[in-house]
Design a protein around this nucleic acid. Structure first.
Length: 343
DNA sequence: AACGCTACCAACCGCCTATGA
DNA sequence: TTCATAGGCGGTTGGTAGCGT
């Protein structure tokens, strides 16, 4: 059971837009303005879904859009904001005049993600890949036995945390190029690339999967033992039945530190009770902490901030977010340093 | 020239939220 | 309060241009 389609699929054209169709959209919007997209196809004489018309206009036909290459400055903005707020493409796009969320998303998926990976930075966490790998290698060494992980079955590419390993990125782990001048200005990249080691993709896949299992265990307050089973070439064996809980790991004899993956003391209690309130960021009107998508902010005036936020709203949101992020970095470095434990 | 592979990007899909009846 | 609808969002896919063999 799903939501019914927004229009009758049998009577609408799909696929690439023709110049003629584009003209009709532009003509319609120039006289009637953008809005009420459901009625646009009929009024403009198009055999298209209204939603499709809206996307065509917002992503391609809008006169204020830029169609040239992203500049290094724009790249830097995307990377920086992605590190702070993740894949909130519409918010990131609001910081880049003339760019759409689709533009930014495509540019990230096709270019920036690979650049970061090549420089040894996990594009999901924006931390050095070697940091994650080293932590898990410590975990592996702590155990002996079989690990059985079928990479094809573990759906690892479906996990957004390792989505960098998906389609079109089969060579993401190619050796570093001699130089990547257009990212040279990325201080973080420069710093973190220093610790990069070119791990085989298979090894990393398995290890990242292990990270996911461990993180899931921590989040869910794991009570039943996790079993790994697999024999991996070149990997240290794990016990066939590993009682893997935060406690057992933390107490383990290895050089692995659970605090590499979670804040000290295991799962965090969300620290805002003691912290300066992050008003306007993860806090709603009643002072409750909002989970999931941050409300878009500033003073709550009752407007629809998500759908109709002005550029200034978005700017203030991002500025606020960045400054609060800095505050949190000071107050709760462990929490912020580990994105895996964020709900 | 033909073929296969890869990267790119426009477009689509499904879900979520806001809004109004 | 409930329901239907529109708009917005992020994730995914399909078509194709470009390149190498």
């Amino acid at each position: 059971m799903g939501r019914p389609p927004c229009c009758d699929k049998s009577n609408v054209r799909r696929g690439l837009w023709t110049a003629e169709e584009d003209k009709k959209i532009v003509a319609y919007v120039s006289t009637h303005g953008a809005g009420n997209w459901a009625s646009v196809p009929k009024k403009a004489g198009l055999k298209r879904c209204g939603k499709s018309c809206r996307l065509r206009w917002t992503n391609y036909l809008r006169p204020d859009l830029k169609h040239d290459d992203f500049t290094p400055g724009e790249e830097q903005t995307i990377i920086s904001l992605h590190a702070k707020i993740g894949s909130r493409w519409s918010i990131i796009a609001h910081q880049l005049p003339g760019r759409t969320d689709n533009d930014v998303k495509n540019y990230w998926n096709t270019k920036l993600k690979k650049k970061l990976i090549q420089r040894g930075i996990d594009p999901v966490t924006h931390r050095p890949i070697s940091h994650v790998v080293n932590s898990i290698q410590g975990l592996s060494r702590a155990c002996d036995g079989d690990i059985e992980v079928n990479a094809a079955e573990c759906h690892i590419q479906k996990d957004p945390r390792v989505s960098c390993l998906g389609r079109d990125h089969h060579h993401a782990f190619a050796p570093l190029p001699e130089s990547t001048p257009d990212l040279a200005e990325t201080a973080m990249a420069e710093q973190e690339a220093a610790s990069y080691s070119c791990k085989p993709a298979w090894d990393l896949l398995v290890q990242l999967h292990a990270v996911k299992l461990v993180a899931d265990a921590s989040v869910e307050g794991l009570t039943t033992p996790l079993s790994f089973s697999h024999n991996l070439p070149g990997s240290a064996p794990l016990p066939s039945s590993l009682n893997l809980t935060p406690e057992t790991i933390a107490e383990g004899p290895s050089d692995f530190s659970w605090t590499d993956l979670t804040p000290q003391g295991g799962l965090p209690t969300f620290p805002f009770a003691e912290a300066p309130p992050l008003r306007g960021i993860f806090q709603d009107e009643g002072g409750e902490i909002c989970g999931g998508t941050p409300a878009i902010l500033g003073e709550d005036d009752g407007d629809d901030h998500r759908g109709a936020s002005s550029p200034s709203d978005i700017n203030s949101f991002v500025e606020s977010l960045l400054s609060r992020d800095d505050e949190m970095m000071w107050a709760f470095p462990e929490f912020l340093n580990d994105p895996f434990v964020c709900p």
